[in-house]
Simulated assay, not measured.
Amino acid sequence: MKNLWLFLAAPLITGVMSCSGPRKSTATTAAIKQLRFIGQQVIPHNMLFNGTVTGGLSGIDYDAAKQQYYMICDDRSEHNPARFYTAKLFFSDKSFDSVQFTQVTTLLQANGNAYPGNKVNAALTPDPEAMRYNAGRNCLVWSSEGERIVNSRDTILTNPGIYEITPDGHYIDSFALPPQFRMQASENGPRRNGVFEGLGFTPGYRYTFVSLEEPRYEDGPRAGLRDTTAYTRLIKFDNNTRRAVAQYAYKLEPIAFPSTPAGAFKVNGISDILVLSDHQLLSIERSFSTGVKDCTIKVFLTDTKDATNINDINSLQTDTRFRPVTKSLLFNFASLGKYIDNIEGVTFGPVLPNGHQSLIFVADNNFSPAEESQFFLFEVIP
């Protein structure tokens, strides 16, 4: 992959092959038995495209009609205004040939202005994390984690949000935020950088599932090295009313490795979800520990069918009479035997030439030269 550095100024990464076909995904949990790795692409560090820096890729979704991918960038209007990219991915069932960026679009506030950076107005600075394309309405939905800074110098509280926009970035509306997810100065509500990290639509676009990356303060501790009590939440929104109709408890895995030095930052949480049916989805858990270069990425088949609706339960610590979602491990990226970075996005792509479904993951490099903007291509084996 080192030769990719030669193309820093070019929007086309490696060779050009025919784009894979536009047939739509029909995958369900019953049809997903295993994943077969096909190939990987890495774009150059902070590659420039149309005057913007292309790192921070935190979500990806496929538009079958236009045969293109939408990728949200988690730049908090620091390098460039908050934005998303469109791209073409070129692959087959035998190889992953290239990634070609095609357009960059600025995310706009309700007043039509770009979002400011935190040095201009921290209260209005977003933290973009997930994005999906709604073909039924020809619109995009994206999520922001908001902000929670409470210290002796300052207090900044910005609620997380879920926003519906036009394909050219203009604001349409926002989803109603359940009270449990409002940022607070006290240790209540969501934790900083642990909020709306993933989202996806049920078939027919009737509902939107949104995943909370880490437990709320009231719901218990963050994941630990041997923890079995870390519960975060999945939220189910009605797309007609944009209001939450259900929430479900999701039990996180323990953190994969201790940090070095001991006591340094470590985390495990849901970095994205991919909805398969009204009650089935893929969930990605991403574990990171300071001193360990790789992230530990596990993909689970998750089902809410028999889980308790915890919409009206404020604390999963004090009210433990709930049944969490069920999940089973589908794939552990460690099995690839290669460096795995901060995977934060997943989407089905088109059907492969062999008739099987494609599945693409993207990693956020956090704009760090020590990390990589990676794309991983898999075949779904039914």
Rank of each mutant, 00 (worst) to 15 (best):
G198R: 01
T105S: 11
T102D: 07
F237K: 04
T28K: 06
L48K: 12
N50I: 02
R191A: 08
D127M: 04
I156V: 15
D61Q: 07
S373F: 08
F37P: 03
P254R: 08
V53P: 01
N113P: 00
L8N: 10
P178R: 11
L359G: 02
T102C: 07
E129V: 10
P116A: 10
G112M: 06
S277I: 00
I310K: 06
F101T: 02
I310L: 10
N111G: 13
G355C: 08
Q40M: 15
P369T: 08
G189M: 14
A256F: 11
E78M: 09
G263T: 11
S373Y: 09
G269L: 03
A185M: 09
A249R: 05
D168M: 06
P116E: 09
L6F: 15
R83F: 10
I360S: 04
E187I: 00
L108P: 02
S20D: 13
V362W: 10
L177V: 11
S143C: 12
N138F: 02
F181C: 07
I235K: 00
F300W: 15
R323G: 01
T158K: 14
M183A: 14
Y207P: 01
N314F: 11
V120W: 02
D312F: 09
R191W: 01
A334Y: 05
K236Q: 15
L329W: 04
G161C: 04
Y133K: 07
P215H: 10
S283I: 10
Y205H: 02
A249C: 11
A31D: 15
Y217E: 08
H279G: 02
E197M: 01
N159E: 07
P126M: 11
E78L: 14
F101D: 03
L157Q: 09
R182L: 07
Q247C: 05
I273Y: 02
F378L: 07
Q41G: 04
A135M: 04
D97T: 12
S373K: 05
R206W: 01
A31M: 15
F201D: 00
Q184K: 15
G39L: 09
I273G: 03
P11H: 09
R192W: 04
L8W: 13
N159W: 04
V351M: 08
P353N: 06
D319E: 09
I340R: 03
T228M: 06
Q184G: 05
P353R: 05
C139D: 15
L107W: 09
T52F: 10
R182D: 03
T241H: 02
T202Q: 00
H79M: 11
M183F: 03
K251S: 11
S335P: 03
S277E: 02
A264R: 12
A27V: 14
L301R: 12
A114S: 13
Q180K: 14
L108W: 08
H356V: 06
N134F: 00
F333H: 01
D168H: 09
G291F: 12
R323Q: 12
L316R: 04
D168L: 05
E218R: 00
H45K: 07
A264N: 12
T304V: 08
I60T: 04
R182W: 01
T296Q: 14
S328E: 15
K327W: 03
R222K: 14
R286P: 05
V267Y: 00
M1H: 14
S186K: 11
P258D: 14
R153K: 13
N118H: 14
F37T: 07
E285S: 02
A246V: 04
P178C: 10
